[in-house]
Design a protein around this nucleic acid. Structure first.
Length: 301
DNA sequence: AACGTACGCAACCGCGGATCT
DNA sequence: TAGATCCGCGGTTGCGTACGT
């Protein structure tokens, strides 16, 4: 049922808040605490709607608001939470003390979404994008890695570097998957399962370290029991980001029975992704001309 | 210096669900 | 139980600023 506009919203001021209005709202909140937002404007003497007052207080004036840029751990947490929750900004805000849903939403839309796209990850599904032309993918992946390497020499922003390192690592992983599958298609005698399991030592490492682990995001910070295991959630990805809290060392780790299942899941997932690509388009000669095998081997080494 | 464009963020809008009467 | 009211959420808009030409 569509409600008619509430009378309190007619004839009230809109647009940016003035310092005077802020002062009135802050004083009212300090004096009376949070009550009825609808009644607040009248009680406080503000020519604003209750909604506007609520928004201004929650998103800007609240004393426990944390200002400034999102640190590395917060960025990782947002990415992880988004992968399991989707666009549930308020739920995400509950896991980021001092941050508002609006702030997280804005940060996601203006920064993190673009970063994931640059990494070749679909920001909606949190899985590698499969809708791209293969060569375009390869070029962007290589560019991501190249940009990372270049930036190492000139940037002093360690957080940006770390994120770029993650992007570059993922780019390498995807490149590797593409190449191995391409080789398997070209040389059918090659055991593609073995090849994939071979990469899986890399995959497993990435599963555990990528985005969430390698920078030392604490397990506690990422413990969101209500959502982590929700396989029906919009960003569910069969464990791609789920197993982020175990061994984070960048070497090959012993495979526990539990991890074996994760690995098998990931193999299935990888093959699913692989089969959705048009591998017939993979022309290794062109690839060689465009990139140079030496460059590729350097990238994935 | 002037103009156009892109970007970031605060604020608004419309809707669905919860609560009240 | 149904309608009215309120709250909170997610999507979108619009303004200010930075940057490029």
């Amino acid at each position: 049922m569509r409600r008619p506009p509430c009378c309190e919203e007619i004839g009230v001021k809109k647009g940016p808040w003035t310092p005077e209005e802020d002062k009135i709202l802050i004083e009212h909140m300090q004096k009376h605490g949070q009550g009825s937002w609808i009644q607040l404007p009248k009680l406080a003497g503000l020519n604003r709607s209750g909604k506007s007052c609520r928004l201004r207080w929650i998103n800007y004036l609240r004393p426990d608001i944390k200002r400034g840029r999102f640190d590395d751990e917060e960025q990782r947490l947002i990415i992880h939470l988004h992968s399991v929750l989707g666009n549930k900004w308020s739920t995400m805000a509950a896991h980021l003390p001092g941050r508002t849903d609006n702030e997280i939403k804005n940060y996601w839309n203006t920064h993190l979404k673009k970063k994931l796209l640059q990494m070749g990850i679909d920001p909606v599904t949190h899985q590698p994008r499969t809708d791209l032309n293969l060569f375009a993918s390869l070029r962007s992946l290589v560019l991501a890695s190249t940009n990372y390497n270049d930036s190492l020499t000139c940037s002093t922003d360690i957080n940006a570097l770390r994120l770029q390192a993650d992007a570059a690592n993922l780019a390498k992983l995807q490149l590797l998957q593409i190449l191995i599958h391409g080789l398997a298609c070209r040389y059918p005698s090659m055991d593609s399962s073995s090849a994939l399991i071979g990469t899986h030592q890399v995959n497993d490492q990435f599963d555990q370290g990528l985005v969430y682990g390698s920078m030392g995001v604490s397990q506690d910070a990422l413990s969101v029991p209500a959502v982590v295991s929700n396989s029906d959630s919009p960003g569910s990805n069969n464990g791609l980001y789920g197993n982020y809290s175990a061994n984070l060392a960048p070497s090959v780790v012993p495979v526990s029975p539990e991890n074996q299942k994760n690995i098998q899941d990931h193999i299935n997932w990888t093959e699913e992704c692989s089969s959705s690509r048009d591998w017939d388009e993979l022309n290794l000669e062109n690839l060689d001309n465009e990139l140079g095998w030496k460059d590729i081997l350097e990238l994935i080494s």
